[in-house]
């Protein structure tokens, strides 16, 4: 990853740095050279933080979430972050650094828990806080409601959205929705950051000929995502950061590193063109309008048990049929999870995601 980034950094093409600040957990300390890199961007107020493991919608408040917040406080005492972000969803893993984010039912309970957690993140970092849209969805209803749910979630902290355009493209493809129809369902005035990334195709074993697009972040940026980028920029009046995202395991060959470089240059040229239509000046602050009050962390034990049961089913199911049978006879059946309406190929995909990440990164 760093080898791929080095030419871009040396040529001063990188105008800001987004740091996944919680993936360093298992090291004793940040390496000195990396600390210097973060410090350089921090001093220019061009450093932003991106969390991976907080598990925003966990029904139970976990001790690890307290540790995560303390780690965030420490990072914020060391570096100046222009904003902090996390992922939408709950993590499937029982261990805090395992699993993948999956969707949750959009209910009053999950809304209250999400708002409670976002307030705690804001209290820890004292800078704008945002959430990234999730690529994975169980059904078309999930896809169509995610934008408005994000808007409600972010309202108390006046937070913002990272609009991951590859995640959006996954949904456009997987549920055959036109871009113009889906983009209008997102509160684009809340978009402060855009993610540009690649992914991979997965052939469904259930539906011959159907290919599922997944946000595996291990390949080049598709031309379609750059097209979405060009279309979306003018619709986001408070956009500030555009971030190229790719996992290191997709950057092992010389060719893949060259492609990463080329993709960044393409992204930056689109940004340069867009900047000709913008003018320097203050951008939206995305800070709470009034003081936030924190009581005890909100919890929903029923939701937590359903999340654990779902994760266990997905991580251990030997086949799609087994997973579907277990879901329909689980405590999730007949509830707001609406497992009866889940798209068969997406259950198949959820099994693959959960089983891929259950051992952690």
């Amino acid at each position: 990853m760093l080898e791929a980034c080095l030419p871009l950094l040396e040529e001063a093409r990188v105008e800001a740095l987004e740091w996944s600040f919680d993936v360093l957990y298992q090291t004793a300390e940040t390496p000195a050279w990396f600390h210097d890199l973060l410090t350089a961007f921090s001093k220019e107020e061009r450093l932003i933080g991106h969390g991976v493991f907080f598990s925003l919608f966990s029904g139970r408040w976990l001790p690890e979430q307290d540790v995560w917040l303390q780690h965030l406080r420490t990072c914020c005492a060391t570096f100046h972050f222009d904003h902090i972000t996390e992922h939408f969803g709950f993590m499937t893993g029982t261990d805090f650094h395992q699993g993948a984010p999956l969707n949750i039912p959009y209910t009053a309970s999950t809304l209250a828990i999400g708002q409670d957690r976002l307030k705690r993140i804001y209290e820890a970092c004292a800078c704008p806080v945002g959430l990234e849209n999730l690529a994975f969805a169980y059904s078309i209803d999930d896809v169509q409601r995610q934008g408005s749910f994000l808007d409600e979630l972010l309202h108390p902290i006046n937070g913002f959205i990272i609009l991951d355009l590859h995640n959006l493209w996954c949904q456009l493809h997987n549920f055959s929705i036109p871009y113009e129809q889906l983009i209008h369902l997102y509160p684009l005035d809340r978009v402060r950051e855009i993610h540009i990334s690649g992914g991979s195709w997965d052939d469904s074993l259930l539906e011959t000929g159907r290919r599922i697009r997944r946000d595996t972040h291990d390949d080049a940026v598709p031309a379609a995502v750059f097209d979405l980028f060009r279309q979306t920029i003018p619709r986001c009046p408070h956009l500030k950061y555009v971030v190229m995202e790719q996992l290191g395991n997709g950057l092992t060959s010389h060719k893949s590193k060259q492609q990463f470089y080329a993709d960044f240059v393409t992204m930056a040229s689109i940004v340069d063109t867009a900047n000709q239509q913008r003018e320097a000046g203050a951008t939206h602050a995305f800070l709470p309008a009034e003081q936030l009050y924190l009581g005890q962390p909100l919890e929903d034990e029923t939701l937590y048990q359903q999340q654990r049961e779902l994760a266990n089913i997905l991580e251990s199911a030997g086949s799609f049929d087994a997973a579907r049978h277990l879901l329909l006879t689980s405590s999730l059946a007949g509830t707001a999870w609406h497992v009866e309406q889940w798209d068969a190929a997406m259950i198949e995909t959820a099994v693959k995601i959960a089983q891929k990440w259950k051992e952690g990164f």
């Binding site: 990853m1 760093l2 980034c5 871009l8 093409r13 990188v14 105008e15 800001a16 740095l17 987004e18 740091w19 996944s20 600040f21 993936v23 360093l24 090291t27 940040t30 390496p31 990396f34 061009r46 932003i48 991106h50 993610h195 920029i233 408070h238 956009l239 500030k240 950061y241 555009v242 971030v243 190229m244 995202e245 790719q246 996992l247 290191g248 960044f264 992204m267 930056a268 940004v271 867009a274 900047n275 913008r278 320097a280 000046g281 203050a282 951008t283 990164f361």
Partner: peptide, 13 residues
């Protein structure tokens, strides 16, 4: 506001 081009980093270390 001027847009800024950035990279996400962190996994590699």
């Amino acid at each position: 506001g001027t847009l800024l081009s950035a990279i996400l980093i962190g996994i590699a270390v």
